[in-house]
Design a binder for these strands. Sequence first.
RNA 1: GGGCGGUUAACUCAGCGGGAGAGUGCUACCCUCACACGGUAGAAGCCACUGGUUCAAAUCCAGUACCGCCCACCA
Length: 887
Amino acid sequence: MSQEALDKSYEPHEVEKRWYSFWEEHGFFDADAKGRAPSFSIVIPPPNVTGVLHMGHALNNTLQDILCRYRRLRGDDVLWMPGTDHAGIATQNVVEKKLAEQGLTRHQVGRERFITAVWEWREKYGSAIINQLKRLGASCDWKRERFTMDEGLSRAVRKVFVELYREGLIYRGNYIINWCPRCRTALADLEVEHEAHDGHLYFIRYPGEGGQEGLVIATTRPETLLGDTAVAVHPDDDRYRYLPYDKVLLPLMNRVIPVIFDDYVDRSFGTGALKITPAHDPNDFEIGIRHGLTGIKVIGEDGIMTREAGEFAGMDRFSCREVVVKRLESQMLLVRVEPYKHSIGHCYRCRTLIEPNLSRQWFVRAKPLAQQAMEAVTTGKTRIVPDVWTKTYFEWMENIKDWCISRQIWWGHQIPAWTCGICNEMIVALEPPAECPSCGGKDLIQETDVLDTWFSSALWPFSTMGWPEESLLLKKFYPTSVLVTGFDILFFWVARMMMMGLHFMKEVPFDNVYVHALVRDEEGKKMSKSSGNVIDPIDIIEKYGTDAFRFTLAAFAAQGRDIKMSEKRVEGYRHFMNKLWNAARFSLMHINEELDPPEPEGLSLPDRWILSRTVQVSKGFADALDAFRFNDAAGILYQFAWHEFCDWYLEIIKPVIYSQAEENEKRKTLGVLNFVLNRMLILLHPVAPFITEEIWHKFPGKRNSIMKAVFPLDEDGFAERFTDTESESQMNRIQELISGIRNVRGEMNIPPGLSLDARVMFQDNGMRALVEEQGEIISVLARLKSLSFINHQERPRKAASAVVDGATVYLLLEGIIDFQKERERLEKEIRRIAMDLASVSQKLSNEDFLKKAAPEVVEKVKTKQDSLLEKQSKLTLNLNRIREMEE
RNA sequence: GGGCGGUUAACUCAGCGGGAGAGUGCUACCCUCACACGGUAGAAGCCACUGGUUCAAAUCCAGUACCGCCCACCA
């Protein structure tokens, strides 16, 4: 009569594999650019091609997938645009390492062959992270997958570059930039990570030009003195205002350099005298410009001292420092050395110490672009959630500096600029020019630098949709609905997408930016390979299943707080999945044919109640997701599915199902069970896509994927027809009564197998009618063998009692009652009530409270006082009777 | 140096002006015909500290302490 039974516990692996390919094959992830439904779109933060799925990805993509699946169920045309990032430096490093294994450097291989090698590498390994995303259940439109280096995106990059150049928003110039001597490339300020470091402050004497005592400067980087071209002091500093000389002798180099006056100098730091090295310090560079000083590059691009460093040429920058210090010491020019804590910059890719260096680079003029990007947030065109990040966003935008976009690496978008070998004319163009427009020369040499990876990422929301073509996709899906990202790339990426999107599309790239937390380890530390605390998401998936993992991530994604990940938590949610599975298993033991949806009329109280709760939960879940409160959304479902549906509803209907109840009644209840369980599956599907799909198909009748189901709130008349607040409050009273009896049983240690006789005394007729009507349910759930009604005079003597709102229940315990235990139980309860009563009464005796508090609050407190007083008197009465019995 | 966040039950965290909550763990009793990855019940908290605003503060304000993060060119 029934179909094959479900296994006793849920086994995720086979299920996940099967349904993922089913969805993909049936095109359920495909976006419909021609659809007429409202659009919902997200562009994925493109993971690096070199990437391996980590917890951050898992969280980020789970949240996106929840939103996409949810919006599909709501009937939207959804586009989730996937892709990967070419990750210039990171990828180049990986391939270089591979070459190194063969004893080769990229320079030996040559640019062209090296790039081919990178492409080959990408072909082979680049899809690893995509496959991992699929295991997470990510419902991206894979057919549209893009890569920041693919042809279309590269064209978009060139177009943006050319246009910005023509508008004067891109320029080239000699500036001091952050140089990574290992990657041998310039880095943007953002790509430098500052770290506290225990260093030294060296005090060094620069003698006067004429052999005078001279002055003492303080520096943390003595080796840079080789490139000094001045010493600066504050113009108002009395120590130096009236020096008898205006030049000093640069130690070790025997170069005469001027003493200059500049406001920048902080008189209170060190000696108030500052050495100026325009080629190796950003501040000195600025001062150098103000005073017309030249810069002398003494540290080379490989971190080795240059010829300009004289006898120190060829030394490594670190050993040079030691030698310089020793030499100064021997010449009695090192006055003293103090320990000094300061922060120094490291390359964010390879951790190498950054060397500020003078060089010729390309820059984006950021200020004008930032202006619009700020306005868009001010006016609310783009909303940042949670709001705390808005301030951070503004602060950064206000202090934005020009963005260094050129990198001296090979893997990336080569800058579309050519220089004429004959007349030196520079040509910036979309395609390689055939000849120099100025002199007609054919000897054109392309700029060797490539663009910062973030330059192409900045175009991602529109370049992936076909820009600069006016594609259908852009029309339908731009601006995107929401960008889901971690705060660590707020500036790197989000801010720059805002700037580029507004400039080129004249429209913000996203309506909302949802900034989620970082995933940390159990102790709250950042997960990193070096600390060995990395939890691999794939391991978690293998062990507990994807749905359990996703549920954990969602449940912990509270706004504004980091997530501490531990297996323990995932285990808890695996139990939840198993609970769901078994709820379905139970239901399917009884549902073995297709059932019509229920009609609200003529249903039992529990049926009306669970339907009404389903409506409330659907609303609550939708509201939570609409506000990006993922943890609330997950929590609502967890609470409902486990503690209302399983704990109460399934238990309540068991008597109906198992008893010889009328076939018609049974059928009605099964109809409700079927209906509610299926609605619940739909609600759960965005968070737990696999198990819900699997269960969905176990139901009788041929059905389409759960992905094609209708979200309960969008179903015809669902909310209106099944909302029944009366049934909810009635069920609450029944539940309270049952819990009251169970409490007595538990506290008195009455074995579950023992059925009791109950006598109930009522406060009001409504409650009496209700209990009479639901007598069977109460009897089963509270394990009663009889339930009857009594009045005051009939109160039993050898009984334990439970006082609930509107009724007192006496449980006959002839022979087994432990009077002392019952007395203690009642006393405890009375104590508790007395405490509540004290706080309530205090409020009500306060005139200010009565005068100033909101009337509804006062009313509420009064009602509460009444009910507490009543309960107290009843309990006291019962207590006195027990005391009598005890004697 | 500037900015931000955290401090609530043993643990992990919700709640953010009017009854201290959840999950895990713990205790007791149950292998009851969906589930022991389970059921029922229970114990457990001066909501970091100090002061202020308010009829009312875990919740708002100020300060203190201790953690954590971000930004920054004091050599």
